[in-house]
Amino acid sequence: MTEPAPALEVAGLHFTYPDGRHALEGTDLVVFDGEKVAVLGPNGAGKTTLMLHLNGIHTPTRGTVAVGGLPVVKANLREIRRRVGIVFQDPDDQLFMPTVGQDVAFGPANLGLRGDELDARVADALSAVGMSRHRDRAPHHLSFGERRRVALATVLAMQPDVLVLDEPSANLDPASRRELVEILLTLEITLVMVTHDLPYALQLCPRSVVLDSGMAAADGETRTLLADAALLARHRLELPYGFDRRLLEVDGVDAARRV
């Protein structure tokens, strides 16, 4: 076996919250380098709990998580958090520094970067999300879509191997939604996206995993999964009203990507 270790490997993950609620009950997930995977599931399926295991915020009750072959355990947390960047759902939770630039610098500074190197990281990350002009502004003076893009920049600045997004399309207006897709499609990075926004998953991720009751219920091509009405219904997932089902046909995907 000389294959490189997968970017992410979750095996038999169990997690019980202190109040006794079982959030994950034997989740398995393998993501290879460069893959873009959507984790789909209704509210309360354990999506966010799974996400918080990927960088060691939560410690598994049972089971293992590894990032690029490195097990997620306390001794490796520093490196794990460099490798896995999580963009949280509410940018107000993520952006807490007085200015955009300082916030983007927070992560790489924690990694020990200083001076010009730090400046360059901040500049690159902000330009990747098209927010260079706003470096000295206060986060609360930005629009919601802009704040989400800055939140993405704060994570990109750490140059992670795996980018994890929690409901990236939540609360975005259609234009901000499209702008974010355009940015995400330019990134050459392993991407895991936690969402219940099925068209967004189709647009960004060739592969999807359906998570329900703390277990991976299905894993396959996003298009195929979304075309399976019975599967979606079983897991309380639904395509929105007005969704063009032609996008689920073989040549439809390319059209969808261009949207």
Binding site: I57, R78, R81, F96, F106, G107, V155
Partner: peptide, 10 residues
């Protein structure tokens, strides 16, 4: 949540 997000960034 802010603390979690900070922890995630090292």
């Amino acid at each position: 949540r802010v603390f979690l997000a900070m922890e995630s960034r090292g």
